[in-house]
Design a protein around this nucleic acid. Sequence first.
DNA 1: TAACGATATGTTAGGTAATGCATATCGCCA
DNA 2: TGGCGATATGCATTACCTAACATATCGTTA
Lengths: 125, 125
Amino acid sequence: METKFSSKLSDVRLHYKIWLSDEKETGIMGDGKWRMLKLIEEKGSMKAACDELGYTYRRTWGNLKKIEKFFGFPLLEKQRGGSDGGHTALTEEGKRLVRAFDAFHKTLDHQIQDGFDKFLLELKK
Amino acid sequence: METKFSSKLSDVRLHYKIWLSDEKETGIMGDGKWRMLKLIEEKGSMKAACDELGYTYRRTWGNLKKIEKFFGFPLLEKQRGGSDGGHTALTEEGKRLVRAFDAFHKTLDHQIQDGFDKFLLELKK
DNA sequence: TAACGATATGTTAGGTAATGCATATCGCCA
DNA sequence: TGGCGATATGCATTACCTAACATATCGTTA
């Protein structure tokens, strides 16, 4: 059936974000840092990852420091100097965190898409 | 099993947000406006709803105007003057939108909680 | 018709976050 | 041993979002 919503909903998009906080509601890690960690793992370089995501190095550096401060142990193994100037890799814990977030997102992506489809259908009927 | 994460995760909380945008990624409506519309429906007053949620009237007024601008038809029926100073109700479309969001959230709340539980388990094992 | 309370809307100040700039350090390699 | 490229970090500036302030308008009721 046609409703007033019908014509408007064709290019409406859904977005979502999940993030972890501590008990004081201070953000620890969300989608942005998750993507950043993933890309650092892939590229082996913080700078390369920043360039690709369009974040400034300065900002990213501060953000990642916050996560490590919360957890109290390093998620990154950073190396300065060398022929390539330096590189950054994930520690075992860093990789574990990224993988857990990956799995979470993978499931959620489907569920949210389903929910969104139903939402649109509901408005159109 | 114990991992480095175990002790840190006891008071980690998960938050999430969903929102709609147009094709230019301009936000249309998210959880904040959804809650506001719900409360306006319940209270019959924009001011009362703002007071309860702790938002300023000014901000809310601007936000709701944006949604209506996008959809191109009113979600609110506003009345100025009268013994009570005025009141605000939802149109049929407003109610429909709120109900669809309600249903979406209800399903999602459970799914996200499930996903989060698995996420924590994954980090601890 | 004066008062009241809610809606309507412009304007401005203030606080937080992102950006940009600057500089220091590090360790391989030519 | 000097240069290069990436990590490390302080600091000033900007940009944006929100709060706060200030009125104006409206229609019923006393």
